[in-house]
Measured scan of single mutants.
Amino acid sequence: MDPFVVLVLCLSCLLLLSIWRQSSGRGKLPPGPTPLPVIGNILQIDIKDVSKSLTNLSKIYGPVFTLYFGLERMVVLHGYEVVKEALIDLGEEFSGRGHFPLAERANRGFGIVFSNGKRWKEIRRFSLMTLRNFGMGKRSIEDRVQEEARCLVEELRKTKASPCDPTFILGCAPCNVICSIIFQKRFDYKDQQFLNLMEKLNENIRIVSTPWIQICNNFPTIIDYFPGTHNKLLKNLAFMESDILEKVKEHQESMDINNPRDFIDCFLIKMEKEKQNQQSEFTIENLVITAADLLGAGTETTSTTLRYALLLLLKHPEVTAKVQEEIERVIGRNRSPCMQDRGHMPYTDAVVHEVQRYIDLIPTSLPHAVTCDVKFRNYLIPKGTTILTSLTSVLHDNKEFPNPEMFDPRHFLDEGGNFKKSNYFMPFSAGKRICVGEGLARMELFLFLTFILQNFNLKSLIDPKDLDTTPVVNGFASVPPFYQLCFIPV
């Protein structure tokens, strides 16, 4: 058959498939802009700032609406009420993970971030239990974070109060905490193996944040037939998995079943207990991918939040002064901060919360999916439909947070200066898919920041009023603009 005829037939089939998918069930789905064949609503979305586009569309179609990214149908949730109703009140029905062709290629359905069903539930339950087990290797997770915080302070001392970009050092600290939990080992910041790991993690975040990856996920045929950065992403992930597998083999040879040292040991012990169960989800494949998931999810998000926190503290020296006064009063100079201190430091706690609220790190979270046909607000959402959640619409709700575009710790303080919780605080998402490392991340943010401010004054290279804190939105995360500062020993 003539190649031209084959091409026309293929394009015609794709067009018909697109029209059929977009028209099927439209009477039951939430409203939304009319999609174009094949490309859907992509032309109506700013790929570099999806969150802003969703906010604009919500003003037209309401808090629940339908979009098509290519052939992929998505239902968008915008605003606290619908997000709570879906992710919390109907948590089980909305607990699936959205379709990610690239991740599915890399992870093969294993791990904790992109798995679904029984596998996801069992691996998540085990990971939560293990991360909360403060007795691994007779050292609590808090001990590990405190140790890394001391190392971080010593690295900052080496800058000798000269101007520096904190990106690298602030990236090393949370990565080392995860390494300590998974591998029972922290690395020197100049260790070549550690630097290679950091390089792969950072490069992957840069790649994932590009519009090209959005295109690959919406048109998965590209993955096999086109060159691009997605190939580098898959190569980096394969490198990390190979490295983790080597460490798993080392653990198998040296493990003491009665004295687990780290996450890998705990997983291997669980595998041993379930070795007679042919349906067990505790396999080497799941261990390797879960460890890679924890490394990827637990490094860049925390380091970016820390980097943004220091920029905001530079911009608002009056806030920094209040935090340091609270540190001096509650902790002093002669001991290290600990998590028990947080309950006695409402202002510092409010500042950490406000940093996370203000920066809105992951504006749309990772997409969910419905696990069955769901009736939601008089609409029928078919099983498997991807759910896109606007966390921006919750964290920047102007009824809950007056002047949401302003950095103001009073958003989390009552009139008496006591810490005030808010149900709208969802930087880790909400419901059954809430970030498994939430507790660890909150511990790291509090301890790293208090250790830094206990030991250093922060000095800006320019007038604080002239510092730009506008986030650089890159399609996946909101990151701070480049800046330098000086760490002046107190």
Rank of each mutant, 00 (worst) to 15 (best):
W20A: 09
R26C: 07
G27P: 12
L29K: 05
P30Y: 02
G32C: 01
G40K: 02
K52Y: 07
L54A: 04
S58I: 02
K59E: 11
T66C: 09
F69N: 12
E72N: 10
V75M: 04
V76W: 00
Y80E: 02
V82A: 13
A86K: 00
I88V: 14
E93S: 11
R108V: 04
E122G: 07
I123E: 00
I123V: 12
F134H: 15
G135W: 14
M136A: 15
M136I: 15
G137Q: 15
S140K: 08
C151S: 11
T167A: 14
F168A: 13
P174D: 04
C175P: 03
I181S: 05
F183K: 03
F183H: 06
F187S: 08
K190T: 13
K190H: 11
G228P: 04
K235Y: 15
F239G: 14
V248D: 00
Q252R: 13
S254D: 11
D262Q: 01
I264K: 01
F267V: 02
E272R: 11
K273Y: 10
T283A: 05
E285N: 11
L287H: 00
L295E: 01
G296V: 12
T301G: 13
L312V: 07
V323Q: 01
E325W: 10
D341G: 01
H344W: 11
T348M: 09
A350I: 02
H353E: 01
V355Y: 01
V355A: 07
P363K: 03
S365E: 01
S365D: 03
H368R: 12
C372Q: 13
K375P: 08
R377P: 00
L391H: 02
S393K: 02
L395T: 04
N398W: 10
R410S: 14
R410V: 09
E415T: 10
K420W: 05
N423I: 09
Y424A: 08
F428P: 01
R433D: 03
E438A: 11
G439Y: 10
L440K: 02
A441G: 08
F446L: 02
T450M: 05
L453V: 08
I462F: 11
P464E: 12
K465V: 10
D468L: 10
N474D: 11
F482D: 14
